[in-house]
Design a protein around this nucleic acid. Structure first.
Lengths: 197, 197, 197, 197
DNA sequence: ACATAACCGAGACGGTACGTCAGGTCTTGAC
DNA sequence: GTCAAGACCTGACGTACCGTCTCGGTTATGT
């Protein structure tokens, strides 16, 4: 049982694909900063007005192109051990650095989220969905008694994503997947004994 | 026999002040994203070309306006105890949130650093100077034996700045100066016993 | 037994009426210049493609809406006297000025006829049909011997329609129905003695 | 002694010329209806924004291009005889038809004046300046006693310009410079004996 | 004192991209 | 086979700022 519109031409999925594809290619070739709607229109052969019909702005477009391109989602490890889960999770996270263009796009989206409050909302939602994977790991650890019941989930999650994004954005030092285990070990030491002086 | 310029009018400090002041006001009223050079020129009564003579770009201008406005530098606490020093440092850091406009400007500069590689360099330098204050605190702690000699200074520093920036940029949760002591305590627990299983 | 099309839905006369009616209303409310096909479609509830199916362009649509709205045709006076006939004709002609919206539409159609050669043809036909009424009056005058046999009908007709349209279009001076008798008297003086030096 | 601005770069007369020239060329090649600002910008090599700085709209631009191109003004004959003056004037007027592109442009401007009230004002001024030449001729005739003192100058002038424009716009019959003397003779016959029954 | 030079204001200029608008065509599914 | 709906391409619109470039005029030197 369907609701809603009956008439009207269907949205062209080929136009949609062409746009997302052209966006991804341009991201690749010129980087986030040089993407323009006009450029995407020209490359994809889709009219500018059609792009504006479906995407509100450049970052919205890029975000969808990214999501489309990623497809393979982050792993959601569940081995029965917080430490193992977190190490797997962090290692996977850190591995983005091996794909410079995805890094570029991530940085661009974070930048736009600062400059455009409309986009910020969508971006924040996406970020939250990423955070959830990690806080689920922690929750399971709490349930198993591996972590204190009064754990500050938000801060704990920040201790992974914060430094991750910070290095991505500031680039003061390389982000190395090999460091993930050490980082997690250190993190857990802090979480398990929050009141040790 | 002299080198360089021999005559010529001096740089007008009033023009410089007017520009920085107008920039600060516009930052206040409309936010970083809506700042334009033309707007600053109009507001300050200084010619656009004069602004371009002295500042390379909008973020460079904003960064200087910020620095001018901040003036009072971050404290560099040295009490003899790593924990006390770090708590003082973090608390001061977190207190930016009490000045929404400075927050806005920080976010804007971070954004620009992602989009403009020329600016990224200057921004990174400024970030490094902030980091140095904290790593000095840690170094003193190592020297006093409070912390392990093989401490990963970079990562430790990231554990403060990372979550700080992350909350600033993503705004998924408020940043509360009152949380600083707890965060530092947790951090130190991780740093002191890096290999505890 | 019918000829031609055998199946299919009949043209909806309600759609036709809705379109013409919406056009007339919009002409009224916003004037010719602001009429758009999309606006007519929205107002009438008729699909844009349906409008395009039946009318080739905006001015064609407006011209039909006008013709529909006017219905009452120009008088075709025949009193037996050229002068009386012409005065009646001119007075009726000049009275359009009392209907500003018809004036607006006339001006709009004249404008379109300049810009769109397809429309120009239809418009010219319509204009010719108006001219015919006057040249018939003159022809009768010639037949009765009131006017010279070698009268230049075209130019004589232009001497009424020319100034009429000119004032309508240039609006340098008001067009006053009360002036009609004087204009006709002057006109006839010229026509009767074409060779007086 | 000059008044006004002291600073600022001077308006580039080469840019101005290039624009007017390109406009004239495009008028020539494609006609008024197909002129676009973007086309003029492309052809002239002048930036679109520069064109918009100096001309409010396409018809304003075309009007100036016309005025520039005409340069040689309409004659202002003064032979001492109304009839001779008017014949010279009308003949010159009718001769536009020998320049199809000027005709096209005149028609386009008249059309725009109907559709755009801002432009209508400028256009009307220009029209008035043309009318003045003719009404001056008539005024001199009145002063010399060749014409009645209570002559309706406006209507008399309309009797030349009205049919002229009418033929230009409706194109129901060709406009022939050779007809000018006959038209004037007929006109004068009407003007001299306005009350002959 | 006065030339030199760098400064400053104003603002025109060539550009790029914006986001919008309307035009006219095409597709879908309902009637 | 017509209709409403509405997606689509096309092309131009007028605007906003960009960063560069004259201009005319204004200080500070240093000889």
């Amino acid at each position: 049982m369907t609701i809603g519109r009956t008439g009207g031409r269907q949205r062209s999925s080929s136009a949609r694909q062409a746009v997302l594809c052209a966006t991804a290619e341009l991201l690749d070739e010129q980087g986030y900063g040089k993407i323009t709607i006009e450029g995407v229109a020209a490359r994809s052969g889709v009219a500018k007005s059609t792009i504006y019909r479906w995407w509100k702005s450049k970052p919205a477009l890029v975000m969808e192109a990214q999501a489309e391109a990623v497809a393979q989602r982050m792993p959601e490890p569940d081995t029965g051990s917080v430490e193992a889960d977190l190490i797997a999770f962090a290692a996977a996270l850190y591995r983005v650095v091996e794909f410079p263009l995805r890094v570029e796009a991530l940085r661009g989206m974070m930048a736009e989220a600062q400059l455009d409050s409309d986009f910020a909302g969508h971006f924040r939602e996406w970020v939250q969905s990423r955070r959830k994977v990690m806080s689920d790991i922690l929750s399971r650890g709490v349930a198993r008694g591996e972590l204190a019941a009064d754990l500050d989930l938000d801060h704990a999650t920040d201790l992974i994503f914060g430094p991750f994004w910070y290095r991505l954005l500031v680039a003061h030092a390389p982000l190395d997947p090999a460091d993930a285990p050490a980082h997690i070990t250190r993190l857990l030491a802090g979480l398990r004994r929050p009141s040790v002086g």
